[in-house]
Amino acid sequence: MPEPEDWIAARGAWAVTDEPGGTPLPDHLLADPDLSLMAKGILALLLAEQGHPVNPYEDAHEEPADIKAAVEELVAANLVARVTR
């Protein structure tokens, strides 16, 4: 069975850095009680890619249904947008 695919990218302006390990993660998002831990992790992955689209299913150990729920959470919060890859 093929791996699920759903390309997403962070919406809006986010800080970027030249340091490979220095991705800034806004404290208010990490502390947001309305975002699940998985949604916060996917958002961190997106911000680490500094604007490049990501397929959150790629190389994931989590269940596709859980990833899909977290992506829907981020889309509903207007933090990410689906994009065509």
Rank of each mutant, 00 (worst) to 15 (best):
residue 2 P to I: 00
residue 2 P to W: 00
residue 2 P to Q: 03
residue 3 E to K: 03
residue 3 E to H: 03
residue 3 E to V: 10
residue 4 P to Y: 03
residue 5 E to L: 00
residue 5 E to H: 09
residue 7 W to F: 15
residue 8 I to E: 06
residue 9 A to V: 15
residue 9 A to S: 13
residue 9 A to D: 08
residue 9 A to E: 12
residue 9 A to N: 11
residue 10 A to H: 07
residue 11 R to K: 15
residue 12 G to Y: 05
residue 13 A to G: 00
residue 13 A to F: 07
residue 13 A to R: 12
residue 14 W to H: 15
residue 14 W to F: 13
residue 15 A to M: 08
residue 15 A to E: 14
residue 16 V to Y: 05
residue 16 V to I: 09
residue 16 V to E: 14
residue 16 V to H: 02
residue 17 T to S: 15
residue 18 D to N: 11
residue 18 D to C: 08
residue 18 D to P: 04
residue 19 E to V: 04
residue 19 E to N: 05
residue 20 P to K: 00
residue 21 G to V: 01
residue 22 G to V: 02
residue 22 G to Y: 02
residue 22 G to C: 08
residue 22 G to L: 07
residue 22 G to T: 02
residue 23 T to W: 06
residue 25 L to N: 01
residue 25 L to W: 10
residue 25 L to E: 00
residue 26 P to W: 01
residue 26 P to G: 01
residue 27 D to P: 01
residue 27 D to Q: 09
residue 27 D to L: 10
residue 29 L to Y: 13
residue 30 L to Q: 12
residue 30 L to V: 05
residue 32 D to I: 00
residue 34 D to S: 15
residue 34 D to C: 05
residue 34 D to E: 14
residue 35 L to R: 02
residue 35 L to T: 11
residue 36 S to C: 09
residue 36 S to A: 08
residue 36 S to D: 10
residue 37 L to C: 03
residue 37 L to W: 09
residue 38 M to T: 14
residue 38 M to F: 08
residue 38 M to G: 04
residue 38 M to S: 02
residue 40 K to W: 07
residue 41 G to W: 03
residue 41 G to K: 11
residue 41 G to A: 13
residue 42 I to K: 04
residue 43 L to H: 02
residue 43 L to R: 00
residue 43 L to F: 04
residue 45 L to C: 06
residue 45 L to Q: 14
residue 45 L to S: 10
residue 46 L to M: 10
residue 47 L to E: 06
residue 47 L to H: 05
residue 48 A to Y: 00
residue 48 A to H: 14
residue 49 E to I: 00
residue 50 Q to E: 10
residue 50 Q to W: 07
residue 50 Q to N: 06
residue 50 Q to S: 06
residue 50 Q to K: 08
residue 51 G to T: 10
residue 52 H to G: 08
residue 53 P to K: 10
residue 53 P to D: 09
residue 53 P to T: 14
residue 55 N to W: 06
residue 56 P to V: 04
residue 56 P to N: 12
residue 56 P to L: 08
residue 57 Y to C: 04
residue 57 Y to T: 00
residue 58 E to D: 14
residue 58 E to C: 10
residue 59 D to H: 12
residue 59 D to Y: 13
residue 59 D to G: 10
residue 60 A to T: 14
residue 60 A to G: 06
residue 61 H to L: 07
residue 61 H to S: 13
residue 62 E to V: 03
residue 63 E to F: 09
residue 63 E to G: 04
residue 63 E to D: 15
residue 64 P to G: 12
residue 65 A to I: 06
residue 65 A to S: 10
residue 65 A to V: 13
residue 65 A to T: 05
residue 67 I to K: 00
residue 67 I to M: 00
residue 67 I to C: 01
residue 68 K to Y: 09
residue 69 A to H: 03
residue 69 A to Q: 11
residue 70 A to Y: 01
residue 71 V to C: 15
residue 71 V to A: 09
residue 72 E to T: 07
residue 72 E to V: 08
residue 73 E to C: 09
residue 73 E to R: 02
residue 74 L to E: 08
residue 74 L to N: 02
residue 75 V to C: 12
residue 76 A to S: 14
residue 78 N to H: 11
residue 79 L to W: 06
residue 79 L to G: 03
residue 79 L to Q: 07
residue 81 A to H: 05
residue 81 A to R: 15
residue 81 A to I: 11
residue 82 R to N: 10
residue 83 V to E: 11
residue 83 V to G: 12
residue 84 T to G: 09
residue 85 R to C: 11
